Simulated assay, not measured.
Amino acid sequence: MNIKSQAAGEIAIPFDHEKLDRLMDAAGLDILVATSKHNVQYLLGGYKFIFFAAMDAIGHSRYLPVLVYEKGRPENAAYIANRMEGAEHANRPFWTPTFQPATWNSVDAGNLAAEHIRKLAKPGARIGIEPPFLPSDTHAILEQLGNSTKLVDATATFERLRAVKTPEELSKLRAASELITDSMLATIEWANEGVTKTEIIERLRREETKRGLHFEYCLLTLGSSHNRAASPQAWKKGEVLSIDSGGNFHGYIGDLCRMGVLGEPDAELEDLLSEVNAVQQAAFAKIRAGALGGDLIAAGEQRLKQSHVAPYTDFFAHGMGVITHEAPFLMTNHPVTYEGVDAGNPLEAGMVLSVETTMLHPSRGFIKLEDTLAVTETGCEMFGERGRGWNRGGR
């Protein structure tokens, strides 16, 4: 089935298609084929099909949403979807002029995408794909497009498109961060002596869910341990707690870490968290539109070198938004494997960063702050900034 959404002149495109056209031109791309759920979500203005929100597998194959976009010709865009998405379209029509809810597997999706691309592609056209998110059977179909077309890795083009957030996106990232902070502080206040890591993580999941977040994960430590996995380990008086969580708010990730203590923090704990915060603040001071991405990395690393906690402490920063590590890419293979290609590029207002300083103290445990900041023209705005000191448990 091929459904026409609306006349070309009436298209309301939910992203900066002129920016996308410029990026495609710079990369030498004629047509883009999005197959990752996060990029399809972005190109559809935040839509994600609920039936496959948690898992892609069905029957012998998988759900594969495909959005095809031709440079400079949004009127030729197509969304190839699962059959059940026809009901979604009936309630809230997709912007793509062509909508095909006809697939149950990746082969059908590939064949329909190829059929649409053949109508558009000129001889020698360069077709941008997402290799990490393109099943081998679908890739094989697109390789047979003919007409001297060439498949090209367009991962970087999608990343650049998402790098600068709109005011609406910033609002969602702010909400995600604030709600995660609220959830973590409520969980720390609830947790008391004897409660286990597994129970604390479950409590956080419930706190995030009741606030409208989709719970993604919780990495938790208690006491002197550096192990952040769920376990029967129980919280004891005087011990520290590190709670690091990601939650999804309407397609955008919040990712923060806060500290708790069961009792009152002693002088050593106050000093250790103060050192972590000093590294964070040194990096924050370098964040503004126009500053090089590497400047904040250098500032954080330099402040850490001066600290007595340097031998067992690490600092890094990364971009975030629809996924947890996205442009700007500021460090190479630290810790996630990618090139820090944006270290020498200026930051732009609307970019969003996660800044992290992590201490693996040999006797006091895992002490960390992770903060989310939006780049502004004059500096930065922190999202979810509360609770950056020692939060008391068992209240």
Results as ranks from 00 to 15, higher is better:
residue 132 P to L: 03
residue 87 A to P: 03
residue 30 D to Y: 00
residue 332 T to G: 06
residue 25 D to P: 02
residue 267 A to F: 14
residue 316 F to W: 13
residue 121 A to L: 01
residue 349 A to H: 01
residue 353 L to Y: 00
residue 158 F to T: 00
residue 77 A to C: 11
residue 111 N to Y: 03
residue 247 G to D: 07
residue 63 Y to E: 06
residue 330 L to D: 02
residue 75 E to Q: 15
residue 96 T to N: 09
residue 5 S to E: 08
residue 373 L to F: 10
residue 200 I to T: 14
residue 317 A to H: 02
residue 234 A to Y: 13
residue 90 A to C: 05
residue 1 M to P: 12
residue 32 L to G: 03
residue 273 L to G: 00
residue 120 L to C: 05
residue 196 T to R: 09
residue 33 V to E: 02
residue 172 K to D: 04
residue 58 I to F: 09
residue 306 Q to H: 15
residue 139 H to R: 12
residue 352 V to S: 07
residue 67 L to H: 07
residue 228 R to I: 06
residue 156 A to C: 11
residue 318 H to N: 10
residue 198 T to I: 09
residue 86 G to A: 07
residue 29 L to K: 03
residue 324 T to C: 05
residue 49 F to T: 01
residue 10 E to F: 06
residue 42 Y to M: 12
residue 177 S to I: 03
residue 26 A to S: 14
residue 27 A to C: 05
residue 221 T to H: 02
residue 107 V to R: 13
residue 54 A to R: 08
residue 387 G to Y: 07
residue 258 R to H: 04
residue 38 H to V: 15
residue 3 I to D: 06
residue 222 L to F: 15
residue 67 L to W: 04
residue 1 M to T: 15
residue 285 A to Y: 04
residue 225 S to I: 09
residue 369 L to Q: 13
residue 265 P to M: 13
residue 362 P to V: 14
residue 286 K to Q: 11
residue 394 G to S: 14
residue 68 V to S: 05
residue 255 D to Q: 01
residue 76 N to D: 15
residue 148 S to H: 10
residue 345 N to M: 12
residue 197 K to D: 15
residue 1 M to G: 12
residue 382 M to W: 04
residue 108 D to E: 13
residue 1 M to E: 15
residue 36 S to H: 06
residue 144 Q to T: 15
residue 260 G to C: 11
residue 193 E to V: 05
residue 296 L to K: 02
residue 229 A to M: 11
residue 40 V to Y: 05
residue 336 V to H: 04
residue 60 H to Q: 06
residue 136 S to R: 11
residue 57 A to W: 11
residue 145 L to N: 11
residue 263 G to Y: 10
residue 81 A to V: 06
residue 14 P to H: 07
residue 355 V to M: 12
residue 187 T to P: 11
residue 321 G to A: 08
residue 148 S to E: 15
residue 67 L to P: 01
residue 11 I to E: 08
residue 156 A to G: 07
residue 120 L to D: 05
residue 173 L to A: 02
residue 334 H to N: 14
residue 202 E to Y: 08
residue 40 V to F: 09
residue 88 E to H: 09
residue 227 N to W: 07
residue 118 R to N: 04
residue 384 G to F: 00
residue 247 G to W: 01
residue 348 E to P: 05
residue 19 K to P: 06
residue 238 G to P: 05
residue 62 R to E: 15
residue 225 S to Q: 06
residue 63 Y to Q: 08
residue 154 A to K: 03
residue 99 F to V: 09
residue 171 S to D: 14
residue 166 T to H: 07
residue 130 E to Q: 14
residue 314 D to E: 12
residue 213 L to Q: 00
residue 164 V to P: 09
residue 135 P to H: 08
residue 253 I to D: 00
residue 393 G to Q: 09
residue 32 L to K: 05
residue 178 E to Q: 12
residue 76 N to M: 13
residue 78 A to Q: 07
residue 389 G to Q: 11
residue 134 L to C: 06
